[in-house]
């Protein structure tokens, strides 16, 4: 029932944001290989965490949800731009249950669409000046700039590990990479931006860093676990795709740290091949090793601990605020992570 409450609120905010995204797409040529494809990923429907967290934080802090809508649109456009580029970089086949944009077109077209989405994401930030004033708009702009830089830095770390076939990573490396690659743009900045707007710039947004970090990491680990254990139709991405892509997940790092020397050699060799040459059977074997060495259980536990840390942070920061559905929404997302049974 409460999952339903969370999902329906996220869906509502997501639908409003999607409508906003459509408004910012120019109605002109070239349509076929650019403007018509910009809304492809957003139309496929995601979880809507980023706009949801941004709008919910704004309303929880006394703002109107309309005040956060432009920033939510920017966040969602950027998120989808990152996905388009990520799918090219990772050579992924499926996104949200359908072939990835570069698979349906070409890498070049997909990269160009991602570029256009990033440029379009700036427009709602300019629009913020009319509704929020110069000071708050500038704060939001700074938040977005930091978000983009951190995300590309995180992506660079992981792509570098894959290129150099780095196999001696520790949990700390993973936590650092995921902070940069996922947490800033998925949780920390959406909450910070929402609270800045809700309080008209009167809040110190640093108070949300831990909350967003714990939430983001917990969420990312769960997403990575789902890539290994979920039903492909329900999950919307290819199962074991992360192993094939050589993604440095917490499970892979745990396995590399704990397996026998001969197994380590095998995994290293598998990861040294170009993605297209890696075999599904080998990926399944690595998945079995992860099960054997309890790497997946370890990741599930770590994710729950971090969600617990997020819950504690949430109560510390939000308990003095009035009880609202939007405050409840943030709490529900954390509780959903804690109780997720995969």
């Amino acid at each position: 029932m409460e999952d339903f409450f969370m999902k329906s609120m996220l869906a509502d905010y997501g639908a409003e944001t999607l409508k906003g995204i459509h408004n910012y797409i120019p109605d002109k040529e070239p349509r076929k290989y650019l403007y018509n494809l910009i809304s492809d990923y957003p139309n496929r429907g995601g979880k809507g965490f980023r706009p949801g967290l941004c709008i919910a934080a704004c309303v929880a802090y006394g703002g109107k949800k309309e005040d956060a809508s432009n920033s939510a649109i920017c966040l969602e456009l950027l998120h989808n731009a990152f996905l388009v580029h990520d799918d090219c970089e990772d050579e992924s086949y499926i996104r949200r249950g359908k072939p990835t944009l570069h698979e349906m077109n070409t890498n070049a077209i997909a990269i160009n669409i991602g570029d256009a989405m990033q440029a379009l994401a700036l427009q709602p930030l300019l629009k913020n000046r009319q509704t929020l004033g110069d000071k708050v708009s500038l704060s939001v702009y700074s938040e977005i700039q930091h978000l983009v830089l951190e995300s590309v830095e995180g992506q660079a770390m992981e792509l570098g590990w894959r290129k150099d076939n780095v196999c001696n990573l520790k949990e700390k490396d993973y936590l650092q990479m995921i902070l940069k690659k996922t947490c800033w743009y998925t949780c920390i900045h959406p909450i910070r931006i929402g609270a800045i707007i809700g309080t008209k710039g009167k809040i110190n947004p640093d108070i949300f860093n831990r909350l967003g970090y714990f939430m983001g990491t917990s969420f990312q680990i769960q997403d990575d676990v789902l890539n290994l254990v979920a039903n492909e139709d329900k999950y919307g991405k290819e199962i074991c795709g992360d192993i094939i892509e050589g993604k440095r997940t917490l499970m892979l790092i745990h396995l590399l740290e704990n397996c026998k020397a001969s197994e380590l050699k095998m995994v290293k060799k598998f990861l040294s091949f170009p993605i297209k040459e890696r075999k599904q059977d080998d990926a399944i074997h690595i998945l079995h090793l992860m099960q054997q060495y309890q790497s997946i259980d370890y990741a599930k536990k770590t994710s729950k601990y971090l969600a617990g840390g997020a819950l504690k942070e949430f109560y510390t920061i939000f308990s003095r605020l009035p009880e609202t559905e939007d405050k409840k929404l943030i709490e529900s997302i954390i509780l959903y992570m804690i109780n997720r049974d995969y």
Binding site: E2, E171, K172, L175, Q176, L179, N209, R210, Y213, F214, T217, K301, T302, K304, Y305, L306, G308, G309, L311, L335, I338, N339
Partner: peptide, 29 residues
């Protein structure tokens, strides 16, 4: 749900595991 969660992490071993992970994350941040 909160109580369920707190009950689930009652044992000392789990608590220290959680603390380790959370502390490690805080240091990185």
């Amino acid at each position: 749900l909160t109580d369920d969660f707190l009950n689930a992490i009652k044992s000392e071993e789990l608590l220290s595991g959680a603390q380790k992970v959370v502390n490690s994350a805080v240091n990185v941040l």
